[in-house]
């Protein structure tokens, strides 16, 4: 069962342990206007445990969004995936810190982490620090982080087909966030997608 958390103002601290053979799926959503300090500590404590943590954030004003994830692989054969995507406009500030720690015993670990950001204004600021600490030798791990701008070639292509600049930007931002929203259970997904569409339209 995927846990969908709509993050509100302030601090959110979660310590999660995933037992052998269990799986934890979580989607964090940060809507415009929310300033938050999220600390997740995920520990895979049984062989074959799995954790998938996703997050999306949209900030268009003066928000401060801070997200820190520690993903501990203590035992063999555990899998984890993290995907965080966000949009920063206005004078908002995003801080992402993500660490994967693979203990010496945690052979055959598969752990992936990605954080991708769109920067809409010169006033917005994104800091992203992906970290890997690996003490085992038989593992598959990767991390990646990007900070980019809306692609102007895409915008011109869409506008040349009659799509307004405003709609083109909305399409670009929705498609950017979509890979995170896909992990929300189907019955909740459409409502969330609509809320994000409204959020990016007014950004």
């Amino acid at each position: 069962m995927t846990e969908v958390i709509i993050v509100s103002d302030g601090q959110l601290v979660r310590n999660i342990e995933v037992q052998s053979g269990d799986r934890k799926d979580m989607v964090l959503l940060v809507y415009p206007g929310v300033s938050c300090d999220v600390k997740l500590d995920v520990r895979l404590v049984g062989e074959g445990a799995e954790a998938n943590i996703y997050g999306a954030y949209v900030c268009g004003g003066e928000e401060k969004v801070k997200i820190a994830v520690d993903m501990h692989h203590d035992l063999p054969h555990c899998n984890s995936r993290q995907l965080f995507k966000g949009i920063a406009g206005g004078t908002s500030k995003v801080d992402f810190y993500g660490k994967i720690i693979v203990a010496q015993d945690a052979q055959r670990t598969e752990a992936y982490q990605e954080n991708h950001n769109l920067l809409l204004t010169d006033g917005a600021k994104v800091d992203t620090k992906p970290q890997l600490e690996i003490y085992a030798d038989d593992v598959k791990c990767s991390h990646g982080a990007t900070i980019g701008r809306l692609n102007e070639e895409e915008q011109f292509y869409m506008r040349s087909r009659g799509i307004t600049l405003e709609d083109a930007r909305v399409l670009q931002m929705i498609s950017f966030i979509a890979p995170v929203l896909e992990n929300i259970p189907e019955e909740e997904r459409e409502a969330v997608a609509l809320k994000f569409e409204e959020a990016v339209r007014n950004i």
Binding site: E153, E154, F156, Y157, M158, S160, R161, G162, I163, T164, D167, L171, Q172, I174, S175, F176, A178, P179
Partner: peptide
């Protein structure tokens, strides 16, 4: 304009793209 190098738009389906274009 038919582009010499048509632009790839990841995440946007042809249906959604054309629906937006036609309705615009």
């Amino acid at each position: 304009l038919s582009f010499q190098y048509p632009v790839e738009i990841p995440g946007v389906t042809i249906t959604n793209f054309m629906k937006t274009a036609v309705n615009s």
